[in-house]
Computed example of a mutant assay.
Amino acid sequence: MKRILAIGGGGFMMEDTLSPIDEYIVSLTGKVRPRICYLATASGDLPAHLDKFHAAYGNMGCETSHLAFFRQPDSRSILVSEFHTKLLEQDAIFVGGGNTKSALAVWREWGLDNVLKEAWEGGVLLAGMSAGAMCWFEAGVTDSLGRAMLRPLDGLGFLRGGCAVHYSSDQERRRSLHAAHQAWTIPTSIAIDDFAAALYVDASLDGVVSWRAGSTAYQTYYDGDAVVETAMVAANI
């Protein structure tokens, strides 16, 4: 079973206390002590993000590791020379937020994009927040070029359609997604609020979950006259 959890915003990177979405990821593995690897490429492997991940998931009893391309390895690292084998041994891989364009470029240069696809097809849960949510789709509305240049960016294409994140909390992202639809530069998309996530099973949307009142996800597309935006029912976690 191939699964991807796309998180619009929230979790250990944005919340000061243990987040329901992090607990949900652990539950999705079905393991008592799951092996979870963190990819912080989009933030340049920022040490503060690595530390927050290991603290959050380590405190939930997970066997944590990370893969860093911009930092020297430490005792918690998967070596760059071993990532093909080690990533396929994980129960889950979590991708953090940051610069989507830069992360994709690094992954493609190292061949990590192919390994992630192999892991996904082999049953490893792929999860991620913000850039780590958009990257799995054919396209995403990204601020990788700066806030004044929000625009679609080609993703890995594991999931069909486009993706936008931080949706209701960032009106500029909403305007940019609608403009991209009107220009026919992004396909039918899912737009995910902060504190909401969309679970895909075998590349099809299985459901939306949220852990804050009012947070959900929306299907968006252009019908030739206007952008249609339909809210989905989210299950509380």
Rank of each mutant, 00 (worst) to 15 (best):
L150M: 14
A164S: 13
D225G: 14
E172D: 15
M13N: 00
I4M: 01
A133Q: 04
V141A: 05
D22V: 07
T216K: 02
D74H: 10
H66T: 08
L177P: 04
P34H: 10
Y38V: 10
D143H: 13
L5Q: 01
Y222M: 06
S43N: 01
A48G: 09
G111D: 09
E15K: 05
A235Q: 13
E15P: 03
R160C: 08
Q171C: 11
C163S: 06
R35H: 13
L159D: 04
Q171G: 10
R173Y: 05
A55D: 14
K117Y: 12
L116M: 12
A148F: 12
R33H: 11
Y38H: 14
A235N: 13
G157V: 09
L67G: 08
D113R: 04
V141H: 03
L150F: 07
I186K: 06
A40L: 02
S75L: 12
Y57E: 08
R33E: 12
A40P: 01
F69S: 09
S19E: 03
S27V: 12
R76S: 10
R76I: 07
V80S: 14
G30A: 09
G140I: 03
L79V: 02
Y222S: 07
S81Q: 14
D202R: 10
S77M: 11
D170K: 06
Y57M: 09
S77E: 08
M129L: 14
D113W: 06
Y218I: 06
I4N: 02
